[in-house]
Design a binder for these strands. Structure first.
Lengths: 335, 335
DNA sequence: TTGTACGCGTTATCAT
DNA sequence: ATGATAACGCGTACAA
């Protein structure tokens, strides 16, 4: 079991450089390659990663940072789908994944990541508009890809969807059903997604000449936010666009709990199209945004950055799709 | 922004070795240390991880391998709790975590891990009795800690609970309630946990002189396994011990769905004491096994292995606790 | 306490 | 196509 290139070179009767070429696919004569490869496999040789990183400057390891309450990562399918997508794409290219969750403070986490060195690049979820962890990574010399967050500065690479456009689309759909008092349960204020979806909602309402006053309640992207539906209904809402599927599921519970029915009394729409959206009763109209795909794209974007280090930032906007289900069937309009 | 120890040494007016000592806590005169530290902070110097790994032989990175369907990691709180525990303990000691999930085959995953080199050690979930991935890691020279699996060979380090004892304990509890036909919904056959819990169940029944024939149905640790409760009840079961909380939750649904009530008609017990167990109606009697704690202990065990590399394997058996709730209240006995 | 000097195992640049 | 040889940046005996 040879442990170094030198030992292997001795065993194969060639120089260390040639063995290195065989391993990394350099120019080597065919029979030389065969001879070395044979020894390589016989001795189960594995090159030393540290030495290789030191000499080449590349480690084959990417960092993934999802700094949220640990609970959330597992309870909210949005984040787990994201992680699955990233993990999948990295594993496919045999790139290692170092993961940082919300176990320590953002400052400590940033410190640990930067002290780790060794990373070729990093993918970070960036949902808050201001986030010292994200700022720190962008300020470092580490190639960085953001998920879900467009920064004001135009120098960051990121993967996102057009939340304004998508929210406009679903709101417009509700309006076309004949609903006039379309309410909105927002996401957590301060996140880009929440603000942009509000903007899209208001844009669609304004274009249709409809008022939005009193038709918006603050939520936080969670099931509990659905309680806001009660307020909206008391203010006469005949349709509700929820900032995500989780809050829509909560809203559905409150609405039916009050003896009202969806979509007859209130049309309901969400955002995400997570797996459970289609299983609700009635199935939920929502915006599909391919969360897992976002994770995959983030990894690919990082690969791209690493390939041409000075190609400038890369921004990827993924498409969304309105998925119409029974929760916005046109019953009221027909009646 | 100094990039190497040499640059820093020049800036501080000392030798490179001294700077290294300041960073790693070696013996340095107090004023020298102060002077160097000042430069260290001013230049935001970060030592090169690869060089340091190459020279010292330690990387400060641990691998965590949870090779299961990606779905399961997030849907089953058992695994997410485990991961949280591990991540927490590693982050606390500023040790990096490389994660491998079930994105590729076990063979490919093993290959990627071993080729990665660079890991100081690895923690792997080992639930199947035979698992090429686990075998491969144990056969490698990588310090390895198993979670949830005692191997026949006595050379592996692991963290586990005594499943036989715990299953005996909960079964005995049901018997003491006056139940005579105690049924069992097993876990997935082939896993150590399932087999050991069966053994514990049978041991308790035998000791009480009770028959188990026809009182056992095969499950798979999931909610769907709860359907087996119907069979058991038809065969006269007046109590059911489910191999975990998930299957117990499923069983509860089937039992009440048939118009029967827990615990009056059938006493019900689970295993794990995951968060939702206390929220069921009625709250579920179960075995608490501190899953998150298992993750923490696994990390600590790895640290121990790394501290004295030739101290031999370390085995940790964590305690379990019977948590009695309303699903096994003594109604029938009292009546 | 501090400095010198060697070794860690590769990659990559030169010659040949 | 192949072989020397110089980096790569740090830890650590050993010497002073």
């Amino acid at each position: 079991m040879a442990r170094t290139l030198d030992e292997l070179a001795a065993l194969s009767g060639v120089s260390r450089a040639t063995v290195s070429r065989v391993i990394n696919g350099g120019p080597v004569a065919e029979d030389t390659r065969r001879r070395v490869t044979e020894v390589l496999e016989r001795t189960k040789f594995r090159p030393n990663a540290a030495a290789r990183t030191l000499a080449s400057g590349r480690s084959g390891v990417a960092g993934v940072v999802m700094h949220l309450e640990p609970r959330l990562l597992f309870e909210d399918p949005y984040f787990s789908s994201l992680l699955q997508g990233v993990a999948d794409a990295l594993a496919e290219h045999a790139v290692g994944m170092m993961l940082w969750l919300g176990n320590r403070s953002k400052e400590e986490t940033l410190d640990q990541i930067l002290w780790m060195g060794l990373l070729d690049g990093v993918i970070v979820t960036a949902h808050q508009q201001d986030d010292p962890l994200v700022d720190g990574l962008l300020a470092s010399d580490l190639p960085t890809v953001l998920i879900g967050h467009r920064r004001a500065d135009r120098t960051a690479s990121y993967v996102d969807v057009d939340n304004v456009e998508a929210a406009d689309m679903v709101t417009t759909h509700l309006i076309r059903l004949g609903r006039r008092r379309v309410g909105h349960i927002t996401g957590r204020r301060g996140t880009v997604a929440a603000e942009d979806r509000i903007a899209g909602y208001e844009r669609a309402m304004a274009r249709a000449g409809l008022a939005t006053e009193g038709l918006s309640v603050e939520g936080a992207f969670d099931r509990a936010s659905g309680a806001g539906a009660v307020d909206l209904i008391e203010r006469g809402a005949d349709a509700i666009f929820c900032a995500n599927d989780a809050s829509a599921a909560g809203a559905l519970e409150w609405i039916t709990g009050r003896g009202l029915s969806v979509p007859e009394d209130v049309a309901l729409a969400g955002f995400d199209d997570l797996a459970f959206a289609a299983e609700l009763d009635p199935p939920l109209t929502t915006v599909r945004q391919g969360v897992q795909q976002q994770g995959v794209e983030a990894a690919h974007t990082l690969f791209h950055l690493l390939r041409d280090p000075n190609a400038g930032p890369k921004r990827v906007i993924l498409p969304t799709e309105l998925v119409i289900r029974r929760s916005t069937a046109g019953a009221k309009q027909a009646a």
